[in-house]
Structure formats: structure tokens, C-alpha cells
Amino acid sequence: MYPENLRYSKEHEWVRLEDDTATIGITDHAQEELGDIVYVDLPKAGTTVEQGKALGTVESVKAVSEIFSPVTGEVLEINPALADAPEKLNEDPHGEAWLLKVRLKGAPPLDQLMTAAEYESFIGEEKK
């Protein structure tokens, strides 16, 4: 379910690290909790996101959830496909429906991110 090559945050975002670039998305658990996603609001390329701070929102019909940035850095690109097809976040949250790419400022906060196995046990605990 949860790919090994990703790292996960307690706020249910995932990060894929490649050199100084981090690709960020929301987890399958997050999309499941939100239900049918209808809209995603993301920052513009060139703006700065800060670890632990809200970088945007995802909306279902009757709820708005903030997306907390798992890393600090500058936004390089946002996923252009989501504006017209937010449903992709429900269908393929770990793949095609990545949210944005960020150029990292400083080292990634690996100590605050979980492995796939850790995340699975974390959401298992939360459910209880």
C-alpha cells in the first residue's frame, strides 16, 4: 500500500527525495479520510514553503483540509493535472497525483518523517 521509497509525515503527507528536490503529495489514508476531493489549492512556483506550515488546502464537498509542508524550500512546480482533475487524488495519490515539487533549503528533516512501515503502524494507532 505505502511505497517504500517515500517518507511520511504525521499530517499525512508523503515526500519523495531526489537530490535537492522533494516531491510532495497526500497519502492514501488522507484521501480516504477526505472522501471525494473536488479542489486543490496550491502555492505558485517561486514561493517558499516552510516545514510544518500550511502550504495549501484540499477540499471535499463539505470539508477543507490544510496541507502541511513536510519540508522547507522553494516551490519549483505544481502538478498541472490536478486543476482539471482533482479526482486523481482519490485514484492515485502516491503516483500521478503528486501535488508539488520543492527545491530543498538545507537538509531534509528525516528525523521527523516516517518510513512506510512506521506510517502504517502510526495510522493503525490513530484509528484506535
Binding site: 479542489y39 477540499e59 464537498v61 463539505k62 470539508a63 477543507v64
Partner: peptide, 12 residues
Amino acid sequence: LATREQHIRREK
């Protein structure tokens, strides 16, 4: 587009 409204977004 009710997520703009007070009953969902409250103070925001």
C-alpha cells in the same frame, strides 16, 4: 462551492 462559506470554513 460551499467550502467558501462560514458553516465549513468558519473563521477563514
